[in-house]
Design a protein around this nucleic acid. Structure first.
Lengths: 337, 337
DNA sequence: TTGTATGCGTTATCAC
DNA sequence: GTGATAACGCATACAA
């Protein structure tokens, strides 16, 4: 490939002059400028970003770490497209690294982006704990922003949605509609999100002094199949319930399917609420309400913070976004007492 | 950040020696090795990949260009996760660039990855034509692989699925079940995929000498909403049909919803086939058959070809993957004549 | 087994 | 306005 030196020779100038017309910095005569431009055209010259970035010590890139296991989630594409768009609006590029399926691999992904000298990093952690994230942030000079986790020490380096509060609000709504027997299907409990959504359920019941019945809680794994299994478990153990909260929409959909197979109508006999608001749900399962996390806004905030930090700014506060209950036909009055 | 020179000084050796223990190339005494390792540890040294890649003229990265408009598609996450996994299995990394929403922006994305000196590039084009892709491939020395397009000149640089043949096969199946009045909802016709699926429909009818009725063809835009509108249009113009083919599952789902609203049962009164096999469909709309494109295999083939080319290998043939009809409850016998 | 010198393709700092 | 020249951080051919 043609280098700057070749362009310079062809135009009869020095590398420096070529560099000047390319960057727009410094004075260069109109005549020289045109010769250079033509030489660039003729030689098909393209700048070598490796060399440029090495020399300037800046890459104009943001690194993003997400995990393979999230790929199937709803938010993934939304997260990615918004992150990419917003990054490019700032005149930078987004570089993606896969966090795969372990804390170590998430670490490696971060390290790789750091080694590539990304100006800053966004991570949507799946396996790394908040303490580990705090440590990572403190041991690197590049700004690092964490999505979907509430950090203890570096509060200004995270943007999250209070899953527990959202879950509690959803369950509360059911309670206020008269429901008392509310079943719950958990997500993977090794994920903070899964654990928090379960906590919210517990909190809501406690606040209304409704006794917690462990038999109404079954474990799921985020998939539609596990949602269906959950319902089978619930019914097999002889439970009755007028409402069901599943920790995401996939499981909710599987659950609704299974309920129908058992001759139980949604929402007439059981109200159902899920999380994440999958795009096709309203078309397929109108009887499904959902708690939506505002990813777009969160990504926006995260990127804005990073850009601000790159300019030397500092934040003091953390940033929490509330979930929003998208109520559709599924939430109906429960039995009255 | 600590550089190699600092590590060298601290260990009392030269940069070369440090480089050797890092790369594993060349001889180095055990003693020196340990001192270097310790120095690395103490200084928190991390290699600067910009410098390394500049020096070696290799980056161990594959670039992937996909378009924003695809982000909402089903394949996106599957495409991405498999591409990332397979790339890393080869000891390389995947770098993603957004093709946004125009041919120019797709060009820019490719160019950026090229400027970053990715070893090779995979592009899933949305706006660039096959001729433009052929030209791009020929004007760059790095291997470039095109997904989902059948190139004219550089057949060995593409991996695709014959959308037209798959569509034709699906429609043929309906015909052989006795259907004669088969409606069709197109995708965006400016996308080759959309155009080819429509062609397949036409081909199948022609092959069975079934007269094409333009009023049975309505235009959609890939979304569930446009699928529902499509059905409304079909019914409004007084058509009757015993089968419906939608150019993707999203539209098929919207269409099924609308049919039900009009009191028309699927599949009893109308058989429906879509494309892409969205993951949740079997749970939500069991009455939907779907033609599935084997993305995983296609990505695998693309990456294998690129790696092979990087090693100096050459291919002569192109690579086509057939679509697979996932038949569920939705395809039933049509009226008999 | 180790070190020196040179190059990778830019940008940045000076003089002129 | 312009052009040498020195970084940037690493790899590598060649000596020693």
């Amino acid at each position: 490939m043609a280098t700057m030196l070749e362009v310079a020779k062809r135009a009869g100038v020095s590398k420096t002059t070529v560099s000047r017309v390319l960057s727009g910095n410094g004075y260069v005569s109109l005549e020289a400028k045109e010769r250079v431009l033509q030489a660039i055209e003729e030689s098909g010259y393209r700048p070598n970003l490796l060399a440029r970035n090495l020399a300037t010590k800046k890459t104009q890139t943001l690194g993003l770490v997400v995990t393979n296991t999230l790929y199937h989630g709803v938010y993934f594409s939304e997260l990615l497209s918004h992150a990419a768009r917003m990054t490019e609006d700032q005149g930078r590029r987004l570089i993606l690294a896969d966090g795969k399926h372990s804390a170590d691999e998430e670490r490696e992904a971060i390290q790789y982006l750091l080694d590539l000298r990304c100006d800053a990093i966004i991570i949507y952690p799946r396996f790394l704990s908040v303490d580990e994230m705090d440590e990572i942030i403190e041991s690197h000079s590049q700004p690092i922003m964490v999505l979907n986790r509430r950090l203890r020490k570096n509060g200004s380096h995270c943007v999250y949605s209070d899953q527990q509060a959202s879950s509690q609000a959803a369950v509360t709504q059911l309670i206020e509609l008269g429901h008392r027997d509310i079943a719950f299907i958990t997500g993977s409990l090794d994920s903070p999100t899964g654990a928090e959504r379960l906590s919210g359920y517990r909190d809501a019941l406690a606040r209304y002094a409704i006794p917690l019945r462990e038999s109404l809680i079954v474990k799921g794994k985020w998939t539609a199949a596990s949602g269906a299994e959950g319902v089978q478990q619930l019914l097999a153990s002889g439970n009755t319930f007028s409402a069901l909260v599943a920790s995401n929409d996939d499981m909710a959909i599987g659950a609704i399917k299974q309920l129908h197979l058992q001759g139980i109508n949604v929402p007439e006999q059981v109200s159902v609420i899920g999380f994440d608001d999958v795009a096709l749900a309203p078309w397929m399962v109108p009887a499904l309400s959902s708690v939506r996390v505002p990813v777009t806004e969160m990504v926006k905030e995260a990127i804005n913070r990073l850009i601000f930090m790159l300019d030397g700014g500092e934040f003091t506060s953390q940033s929490a976004f509330p979930g929003e209950l998208i109520r559709r036909e599924s939430v109906v009055n429960g039995p009255t007492f």
